[in-house]
Nucleic acid binder design. Structure first.
Lengths: 230, 230
DNA sequence: AGGCTTATGTTGTCACTGTCAACATGAATA
DNA sequence: TATTCATGTTGACAGTGACAACATAAGCCT
């Protein structure tokens, strides 16, 4: 379908997507309207239907783009890390940071269009994000900075923690500023990664330093049919 | 406003609320419609406007009722615990269990109507839920089963963890059944509570037992203007 | 009792939305 | 050059949230 960019409006699809992302960032996904997006793009209502089967399908695409940006945020944040363990923690901070900057977009990505087809629908991008996290975990394990157990429970735990922090912070349920929320993310990550999960015997663990502020976890997403371990 | 139950329809408000809760449980908050609720209650559209200023206000009330049920779920789950620490963990399982049983309702409670008035709007019920959690944490601290540090960071961490597990599981992002999700919640809780947060020196910690399955965290919600500690 | 006020519910209406069908247009292709 | 098909437009329809005007019955006050 994605020809080059011939025709009338020269790649409308992307223009619509951008307008949708912007609009959602402004008013949120509930007030968000297909027709308004069309207006912004200076096309008639119904023009979007040549590129998206429905409003929900547009939202799915918006979500996909969000996952790309989320991955970018995590990767950028990780880059500052000097050890696998630190990169893992910074990865989580990148996750929370993205969520705080684009709360509406984040909501669309995780809470909006249960896309009918059950298993792993639009999750392609989400899987990539989860892959980044898993990468961090296994790297830390390989470096001996994390117990060499099944990485999945570890990754899930870390993911759930940062995701929970992000959602609660967005909802205004944590009485913390954005900065403090990031700092808290580091703190909480440290708590989690300090000790191996109960199921698996410990392995050498480095205490990163004192306490203060600068910790991270990781974050990602996907619903692959991993071999379960619990 | 809540007189006895005189008038035409004998306490419509509650009928509408029940219908709304039911409808949201069926089709979710996006497909949910004021007019449909009115139909179910056998009143004209616009009848709801005598009891709720807008659709969003109805949703806020639905959310409030959800928090009551959430608290009930946590309390019921806690009741089985034999030690403060175990009760804390079971509290978290009750949290996740509620979310898995009523995913739509859960979404309304945490992700829907940013209720205009900034600070702590409909959070009255949410504060109560958070209070339950905080109770559990301080009880465990008093029993020496948790480090006697500031309970807030501990409570936030635990809350974020179970909230994250709940949201991810609802979204189908954890490849785990409902049962396995609860078991994983216990597992992850154990991981978290096993060691004091980095900021505060450790205190005697009981290793509850081996590994297997039966752990919990806790869960709650609120956005009180607590004195922050991070 | 009678009359006022007010809480409650109804009818009618409006702008707006998502979606469908029918039509128009211009690019690529034969 | 004629055909075809991707793209965009116009027009319509049912359904929605919200408002205004109206109807009714409960409660209250002499």
């Amino acid at each position: 379908m994605p020809r080059s960019q011939p025709y009338h409006h020269a790649n409308l699809r992307q223009v619509l997507l951008d307008a949708a992302v912007a609009r959602i960032g402004e008013v949120g996904p509930r007030a968000f309207t297909l027709r308004e997006v069309a207006r912004r793009a200076d096309v008639s209502h119904n023009a979007p239907y040549r590129h998206f089967a429905s409003k929900d399908e547009l939202l799915v695409s918006v979500a996909a783009e969000g996952f790309d940006r989320l991955i970018a945020s995590m990767r950028k944040s990780m880059a500052r890390g000097k050890s696998p363990r630190e990169r893992l923690e910074l990865c989580g901070c990148g996750y929370v940071d993205f969520a705080l900057r684009w709360p509406h977009h984040f909501l669309v990505m995780f809470d909006l269009p249960r896309p009918a087809n059950d298993c792993e629908p639009s999750h392609a991008a989400g899987e990539n994000a989860f892959a980044v996290l898993l990468e961090c975990v296994t790297a830390a394990q390989a470096a001996g900075e994390l117990p060499a157990s099944d990485p999945l429970p570890l990754a899930w735990t870390a993911w759930a923690l940062v995701h929970g922090i992000a959602k609660l912070a967005i909802g205004g349920n944590l009485p913390l500023s954005a900065r403090a929320t990031i700092a808290f993310t580091r703190h909480a990550s440290q708590t989690i990664f300090r000790v191996p999960p109960a199921t698996h015997p410990a392995q050498p663990l480095r205490k990163s330093s004192q306490a203060a502020k600068d910790e991270k976890i990781k974050g990602a997403r996907a619903s692959p049919r991993f071999s379960r371990s619990l």
